[in-house]
């Protein structure tokens, strides 16, 4: 076994002490949260943002969520026809769209399966609450997160 262990007793102890002494005078690597903040990578799964305009209440996300923590209710609304004389269109409107972050396991399946690109990941992470019921984000709160969604990172070229 190749091992850089000295035969002379005490040398091993000295090496360790030299290492800690060296580190003592190096810059610390930790960040002084909350005075400084780390910037998460763009893909980081922090919180889910909802675009209510894009959502068609198809319920796919709610169905595919592994722990079923998305609650959606909606109804159909008749819209005026797009061209005069046409039939009135029916459009689905969201009544309720809640994600229970106390249950969510941040797997990202909902974002992935949404066929209309209505859900996005935002790397925002500062939304802890004192009570578990406050972790239920409603439609308005989810829409607010939309502003924090970053542009996707450029891809490796190879």
């Amino acid at each position: 076994m190749a091992l850089r262990v000295s035969k002379v007793p005490g040398i091993g102890l000295m090496k360790g002490m030299w290492l800690t002494l060296r580190t003592l005078f190096k810059r610390p690597v930790t960040i002084n949260y909350p005075k400084e903040k780390e910037i998460p990578v763009p893909r980081a799964r922090g919180v889910i943002a909802l675009d209510t305009e894009a959502c068609t209440v198809c319920m796919l996300c709610a169905r595919e969520c592994p722990d079923w923590c998305i609650y959606i209710e909606g109804h159909k609304e008749l819209q005026p026809p797009s061209k005069p004389g046409g039939r009135p269109r029916s459009r689905a409107t969201l009544d309720r769209f809640d994600i229970d972050y106390a249950l969510c396991m941040y797997c990202g399946i909902c974002v992935e399966v949404c066929p209309f690109d209505a859900l996005f990941w935002s790397p925002e992470y500062e939304y802890s609450e004192g009570s578990i019921s406050a972790m239920l984000h409603d439609k308005e709160r989810l829409t607010d997160w939309l502003a924090t969604v970053p542009a996707p990172p450029p891809l490796e070229k190879n």
Binding site: V41, P42, R43, D51, A54, G108, V111, E112, C114, D117, A118, L119, F120, W121, V149, P150, A151, P152, P153, P154, L155, E156, K157
Partner: peptide, 16 residues
């Protein structure tokens, strides 16, 4: 997966 304001599914290949 969905990401970003361009409203398109974004390829999740290795980032630059």
């Amino acid at each position: 997966a969905g990401a970003g304001s361009n409203q398109k599914k974004v390829v999740q290949d290795l980032p630059e």
